[in-house]
Design a protein around this nucleic acid. Structure first.
Length: 157
DNA sequence: GCCAACGTTGGC
DNA sequence: GCCAACGTTGGC
């Protein structure tokens, strides 16, 4: 199983909204690296740290899981969508997305706390200038973040 | 194919 | 609101 981190701006789509919706499609990602991970690497059941960006403090808010593997992002050819890309079509989709569902809400784990934790050294999120909205997380880092929220991996089952 | 200009992300 | 980082665009 792979593990991931996905960023969402708190005031755009918070974890609480995911809980309310029960499931959502992760549309609007327009970055090739992130697309490739969603299209090729994210598998059913993979776990995701749900991260709130653009808020004070930035933080991990919960755990989600992949409930549908990569498929074309239909907002890319929706003329009414702000995510529209003229070069993408149903016949030749350029952008992909996955569906995620909530697993467990976490006590806030702030970016500062993560930076201060030596066990998280090397985590992509903590790298200077890291902007990717979808990132891989190794199992040690993933479990360490859980632990910082007082949760053990078994609690997710 | 290089690279300067530009736009966006996102912490601070 | 600032600005560093960095991906994308487009002229050449």
């Amino acid at each position: 199983m792979n593990r991931w981190l996905m960023k969402s701006e708190l005031d755009v789509y918070p974890y609480s909204q995911l809980v309310e919706d029960g499931q959502t499609h992760w549309d609007g990602v327009r970055n090739y690296q992130a697309r490739n991970m969603m299209r090729d690497d994210m598998k059913l059941g993979d776990l995701v740290l749900f991260y709130h960006s653009n808020t004070k403090p930035p933080h991990v808010a919960g755990v989600a899981k992949i409930v549908r593997e990569g498929y074309p992002d239909f907002t890319s050819w929706d003329v009414n969508s702000k995510y529209r890309d003229e070069k993408s079509s149903p016949e030749n989709p350029r952008w992909f997305m996955v569906d995620i569902a909530p697993v467990k809400e976490l006590a806030m784990v702030s970016l500062d706390a993560m930076k201060a934790n030596p066990a998280l050294e090397g985590m992509p999120l903590l790298r200077r200038g890291q902007r990717l909205s979808v990132q891989p997380v190794n199992v040690e880092h993933f479990n360490e973040v859980l632990s910082m929220a007082g949760v053990s991996p078994e609690d997710l089952e």
